[in-house]
């Protein structure tokens, strides 16, 4: 069953197609890796999927509903089901807000529509602690500010915020790129566990083929706005791979 289905998606800036007729499907419960160099259009693609950018042509179908033309208020119920993890956790957290307030942000928006199955809300503190625990952070960290904790911990906080309303899908936009090696491995492992525990689907965007390889079931390779190769992870070393994919494999 396809959770997300993209057909012929086009987004251009000044006449240049940053996203150039892209089509793919993301199956429910799966992690789809998207690999490409910086500037290949993968971040633009993620913004289009989230409808933070308008779309020039093509369709985005999420849970059997076309979302490419919806306006902000129509998008609201959809936003509940697609969350994003950004590359830089420092920028992704409001420095003036305590961690618990950042984590509570989505919940307070969707309170009325939510029926949580994995988490439960009895009080704010209890709920925040539950989420902190789910991402491997100590209870009570909610009372601190982002600048008081490490980069890896900050990324865990943004993950806690994203999973707090139990979305169907996470877009991971280079979630480990700004972390050091050991922390990278830990965060990747956490993301892998969470996907299984919470039955999440991921679109995992990265320039790091090894990380994508570790987490994904399907891999797409993007170059200059186009998907040049798409294959199940077991076929990574197959002879049929696109020459650009082979070039990437060579690097890692």
């Amino acid at each position: 069953m396809n959770l997300l289905s993209v057909k012929d998606l086009v987004k251009s800036y000044n006449g240049i197609n940053a996203v150039d007729h892209i089509s793919f499907d993301l199956k429910k419960g799966e992690c789809l890796g998207l690999v490409g160099e910086s500037g290949c259009g993968k971040s633009t693609l993620s913004r289009c999927l989230l409808r933070l950018e308008s779309v020039d042509a093509g369709s985005i179908t999420f849970k059997d509903k076309e979302i490419q033309k919806l306006n902000q208020s129509q998008l609201r119920p959809i936003r509940k089901d697609i969350q994003i993890i950004f590359q830089n956790p420092t920028a992704a957290l409001n420095p003036r807000l305590k961690i618990k307030d950042s984590i509570l942000d989505p919940y307070l928006q969707y309170q009325k529509e939510l029926s949580l199955t994995h988490f439960s809300f009895t009080s704010k503190d209890q709920y925040v602690n539950q989420l902190l625990e789910a991402v491997g952070l100590p209870k009570g960290m909610g009372d601190r500010y982002p600048h008081e904790i490490s980069g890896g911990q900050r990324q865990r906080v943004t993950i806690a915020r994203a999973i707090s309303i139990e979305p169907e899908m996470l877009i991971l936009d280079e979630p480990t790129a700004s972390l050091d090696v050991i922390t990278q491995a830990e965060v990747l492992a956490l993301l892998g566990e969470l996907r299984q525990q919470l039955q999440l689907s991921y679109l995992f965007i990265s320039h790091d083929l090894t990380a994508v390889n570790q987490l994904s079931q399907q891999i797409m390779v993007m170059k200059k706005g186009k998907i040049v190769d798409q294959f199940p992870v077991s076929q990574l070393f197959s002879e049929d791979r696109h020459s650009y994919t082979k070039e990437l494999i060579e690097i890692f």
Binding site: V181, A185, D208, Q214, L236, F252
Partner: peptide, 11 residues
Amino acid sequence: RQLIKAAPILS
């Protein structure tokens, strides 16, 4: 050892 293990390599 930890560092070596944490650095992902292909295959």
